[in-house]
Amino acid sequence: KLLSSIEQACDICRLKKLKCSKEKPKCAKCLKNNWECRYSPKTKRSPLTRAHLTEVESRLERLE
């Protein structure tokens, strides 16, 4: 599967780190437990900047 097509777990399953069936409108866990089942939009991760990478590398060197 391509990364862009990976389905996201519902908010509660993601928060509780449960295996989500990803069914809509309610996944199996939410249906069974009568929880409100919501699927928040995916958040875009910002790409690493060179400055951040350099900072992490220098912190790693100090720890070694």
Rank of each mutant, 00 (worst) to 15 (best):
K1P: 15
K1D: 08
K1Y: 13
K1I: 04
K1C: 15
L2I: 11
L2D: 14
L2M: 14
L2G: 13
L2P: 14
L2Y: 15
L2W: 12
L3I: 11
L3D: 15
L3M: 11
L3V: 11
S4V: 11
S4C: 12
S4M: 14
S4L: 15
S4K: 05
S4N: 08
S5D: 14
S5P: 09
S5A: 09
S5N: 09
S5H: 11
S5Q: 08
S5V: 08
I6H: 10
I6Q: 13
I6D: 08
I6R: 04
I6F: 13
I6V: 09
I6S: 11
E7R: 08
E7M: 08
E7H: 04
E7A: 08
E7G: 10
E7S: 10
E7F: 11
E7N: 09
E7D: 12
Q8M: 10
Q8E: 03
Q8A: 12
A9L: 00
A9R: 02
A9H: 06
A9T: 03
A9V: 08
C10T: 04
C10H: 01
C10E: 08
C10A: 04
D11L: 04
D11V: 06
D11T: 03
D11M: 04
D11K: 00
D11C: 01
D11P: 02
D11E: 04
D11A: 01
I12R: 10
I12M: 09
I12Y: 13
I12Q: 11
I12G: 13
C13S: 00
C13W: 04
C13D: 00
C13V: 05
C13R: 08
C13Q: 00
C13G: 01
R14C: 00
R14T: 05
R14H: 07
R14Q: 06
R14P: 05
L15F: 12
L15G: 14
L15V: 12
L15P: 02
L15H: 10
K16D: 00
K16S: 03
K16T: 00
K16H: 00
K16A: 00
K16M: 00
K16W: 03
K17V: 04
K17W: 06
K17Q: 06
K17F: 00
K17N: 06
K17C: 03
K17E: 00
K17M: 01
L18E: 02
L18R: 05
L18F: 03
L18D: 03
L18H: 15
L18P: 06
L18K: 02
L18Q: 08
K19P: 06
K19Y: 00
K19N: 05
K19W: 04
K19D: 03
C20Q: 04
C20I: 05
C20S: 03
C20A: 03
C20M: 06
C20K: 05
S21Y: 01
S21F: 00
S21L: 03
K22S: 03
K22E: 04
K22P: 04
K22N: 06
K22M: 07
K22G: 03
E23D: 13
E23A: 14
E23F: 07
E23R: 09
K24M: 13
K24C: 10
K24G: 13
P25T: 07
P25Q: 06
P25S: 07
P25N: 07
P25G: 09
K26N: 15
K26F: 15
K26L: 14
K26E: 11
C27L: 00
C27E: 00
A28T: 12
A28E: 11
A28H: 12
A28F: 08
A28D: 14
A28L: 10
A28I: 10
K29M: 07
K29T: 07
K29Y: 06
K29L: 08
K29H: 04
K29D: 04
K29Q: 08
K29A: 04
K29W: 02
K29V: 06
C30Y: 05
C30N: 05
C30S: 02
C30G: 05
C30L: 01
L31K: 15
L31P: 03
L31I: 12
L31S: 13
L31W: 14
L31A: 15
L31V: 13
K32P: 04
K32S: 10
K32H: 12
K32Q: 12
N33Q: 13
N33T: 09
N33E: 10
N33Y: 12
N33P: 01
N33W: 04
N33S: 15
N34P: 02
N34I: 14
N34F: 11
N34E: 14
W35S: 14
W35V: 14
W35D: 12
W35N: 14
W35C: 09
W35Y: 15
E36R: 14
E36D: 15
E36P: 13
E36L: 12
E36N: 15
E36H: 13
E36I: 08
E36G: 12
C37F: 07
C37L: 02
C37I: 03
C37T: 00
C37E: 00
C37R: 04
C37A: 06
C37D: 07
C37G: 07
C37V: 02
R38V: 13
R38K: 11
R38N: 15
R38C: 13
R38W: 09
R38Q: 11
R38Y: 15
Y39N: 03
Y39H: 06
Y39F: 09
Y39A: 04
Y39T: 08
Y39V: 08
Y39E: 05
Y39R: 07
S40Q: 07
S40W: 03
S40P: 00
S40D: 00
S40F: 05
S40M: 07
S40K: 04
S40T: 10
S40A: 10
S40C: 05
S40Y: 06
P41R: 05
P41D: 08
P41Y: 04
P41C: 06
P41G: 09
P41K: 08
K42L: 12
K42N: 08
K42F: 11
K42T: 10
K42W: 08
K42D: 04
K42A: 12
T43I: 15
T43L: 13
T43F: 09
T43V: 09
T43S: 12
T43M: 11
K44M: 12
K44Q: 15
K44Y: 10
K44A: 15
K44F: 08
R45Y: 00
R45T: 04
R45V: 00
R45G: 01
R45P: 03
R45A: 01
R45W: 02
S46R: 03
S46Y: 02
S46W: 02
S46E: 01
S46V: 00
S46A: 08
S46I: 01
S46P: 11
P47S: 07
P47W: 06
P47M: 05
P47K: 08
P47V: 04
P47E: 06
L48C: 05
L48Q: 03
L48F: 05
L48K: 06
L48T: 03
L48M: 05
L48E: 01
T49S: 04
T49F: 03
T49H: 06
T49I: 05
R50Y: 06
R50G: 02
R50V: 05
R50C: 01
R50H: 02
R50I: 03
R50P: 01
R50D: 05
A51L: 12
A51T: 08
A51R: 11
A51W: 04
A51Q: 12
A51C: 11
A51G: 08
A51H: 10
A51I: 12
H52M: 02
H52S: 05
H52G: 00
H52C: 04
H52V: 01
L53T: 01
L53C: 07
L53E: 08
T54H: 09
T54K: 07
T54E: 13
T54S: 13
T54V: 08
T54Q: 11
T54M: 08
T54Y: 07
T54R: 06
E55W: 15
E55R: 09
E55K: 10
E55G: 11
E55I: 09
E55L: 10
E55D: 14
V56N: 00
V56S: 02
V56L: 10
V56R: 01
V56A: 00
V56G: 00
E57S: 06
E57W: 04
E57C: 04
E57G: 01
E57V: 05
E57R: 06
E57M: 00
E57I: 03
E57Y: 05
S58E: 15
S58Y: 15
S58P: 05
S58Q: 13
S58I: 15
S58K: 10
S58D: 11
S58R: 09
R59M: 07
R59A: 09
R59W: 01
R59S: 08
R59L: 04
R59T: 06
R59C: 06
R59K: 10
L60C: 14
L60D: 02
L60G: 04
L60A: 13
L60F: 09
E61A: 10
E61G: 15
E61T: 15
R62G: 06
R62D: 02
R62E: 06
R62Q: 14
R62P: 08
R62S: 11
R62L: 12
L63H: 00
L63V: 08
L63Q: 02
L63E: 01
L63P: 00
L63R: 08
L63K: 02
E64H: 10
E64V: 10
E64G: 05
E64K: 09
E64I: 11
E64R: 07
